[in-house]
Simulated scan of single mutants.
Amino acid sequence: MKRVLVTGGSGSLGKVIIRELVRLGYHPSILSKKTNYISPTGSTILMGDLTDKRSLPDINTDVIIHCASNAMDSENVDVKGTEHLIGAINKDSSPHLIYISIVGVDKSTFSYYTHKRKAEVIIENSKVPYTILRLTQFHDFVVQRMIYNLQDEESPEFKIPEGLKFQSIDITDASKYIAELVEKEPLNTTVTLGGPEVMSLKEMAQIYFNQINRDKKVIEVSESTLDSEFYAIFRSGSNLCPENRYGSIRWSDFLSKRIIEG
């Protein structure tokens, strides 16, 4: 069984990746700076902080799944953290570095995206064998950022920016694909992966309100405070990869499961 190290293992994606790896029989290590963090059953903790290269241990492993990221501090975590991670790899080791990125990072000036792209370039220019996996947004992202954040509970209307589209993927489907990459040879290139369907945010929101039995009228707004560089990403279509559909859990399936589990 290959030795696997996961960065960002305590995050939303990392937790599911760890669970999938353990299910497959791996005993992954989780790079963490949290002294009180209790690792999930079947995994171990490797102490270290990506933003502080002096804290990082000598990394000697077969595979690194690098999904540590912080949209609020992306220059330190995503850019410098990637530099520090590569610098900590044992010189006699040649692990397969699997980097989790985002579809469209090469087509946007949004700061978080430009930092993710810089991290990609650092990996591409390193001597470490790699696979860069660009994913579309998760279903959870659409619920949290595009529905919960924009919703006015008191209003019968749900106003959203006009023209936004998503090809969201379920986090469990994404984690299964990532776990499959562990057994594969490094591709030394970039792979894009999206969910099984492309939908407008208007369609997704209407399905959501139907699922929770809320009578809300979804209205697209063409010009408002909802217009920003962030929303422009999802209006441009650069966040989509319809030629690379993956996964079996569609938006409606995800919502049904979420409602059942509360």
Rank of each mutant, 00 (worst) to 15 (best):
residue 173 D to E: 08
residue 155 S to G: 03
residue 172 T to E: 15
residue 17 I to E: 03
residue 118 K to V: 12
residue 94 S to G: 10
residue 144 Q to V: 15
residue 110 F to N: 14
residue 113 Y to P: 03
residue 129 P to A: 11
residue 256 S to G: 11
residue 65 I to W: 06
residue 152 D to I: 10
residue 10 S to L: 12
residue 139 H to G: 09
residue 51 T to W: 00
residue 252 S to P: 01
residue 25 G to I: 03
residue 54 R to Y: 00
residue 24 L to K: 01
residue 175 S to Q: 15
residue 225 T to F: 12
residue 216 K to E: 07
residue 183 E to H: 04
residue 137 Q to C: 07
residue 149 N to M: 14
residue 115 H to V: 06
residue 42 G to I: 05
residue 36 N to P: 03
residue 45 I to W: 07
residue 214 R to T: 15
residue 232 A to C: 11
residue 226 L to N: 01
residue 175 S to R: 15
residue 50 L to G: 06
residue 232 A to E: 11
residue 43 S to R: 03
residue 23 R to M: 00
residue 200 S to M: 09
residue 219 I to M: 08
residue 214 R to F: 15
residue 162 E to S: 08
residue 235 R to W: 05
residue 252 S to D: 15
residue 185 E to H: 00
residue 229 E to I: 09
residue 235 R to I: 09
residue 223 E to C: 08
residue 80 K to M: 11
residue 166 F to E: 03
residue 200 S to G: 15
residue 85 L to N: 04
residue 89 I to N: 05
residue 186 P to E: 13
residue 147 I to M: 15
residue 158 F to G: 04
residue 23 R to Y: 09
residue 103 V to C: 07
residue 182 V to W: 02
residue 130 Y to F: 10
residue 68 A to N: 01
residue 213 N to I: 13
residue 44 T to H: 12
residue 101 S to R: 09
residue 186 P to F: 13
residue 42 G to L: 09
residue 224 S to V: 06
residue 146 M to S: 14
residue 100 I to T: 06
residue 261 E to V: 02
residue 145 R to S: 13
residue 141 F to S: 00
residue 188 N to K: 12
residue 244 N to H: 09
residue 142 V to Y: 02
residue 147 I to Y: 15
residue 221 V to N: 08
residue 193 L to I: 04
residue 88 A to E: 07
residue 126 S to D: 11
residue 244 N to G: 02
residue 59 I to T: 05
residue 130 Y to Q: 00
residue 67 C to H: 02
residue 136 T to P: 04
residue 106 D to H: 14
residue 33 K to C: 01
residue 161 P to H: 08
residue 136 T to A: 03
residue 233 I to R: 02
residue 16 V to K: 08
residue 213 N to W: 01
residue 65 I to N: 07
residue 262 G to D: 14
residue 260 I to M: 05
residue 63 V to Y: 01
residue 45 I to D: 02
residue 17 I to Q: 04
residue 178 I to N: 02
residue 29 S to E: 14
residue 154 E to W: 02
residue 103 V to R: 03
residue 107 K to T: 15
residue 123 I to D: 07
residue 119 A to W: 00
residue 143 V to T: 14
residue 67 C to T: 12
residue 98 I to P: 05
residue 17 I to F: 04
residue 194 G to F: 00
residue 5 L to M: 08
residue 100 I to M: 09
residue 180 E to M: 01
residue 40 P to S: 03
residue 203 E to L: 12
residue 66 H to Y: 08
residue 258 R to Y: 03
residue 128 V to P: 07
residue 212 I to H: 14
residue 103 V to H: 05
residue 26 Y to R: 10
residue 205 A to R: 05
residue 95 P to G: 10
residue 191 V to K: 11
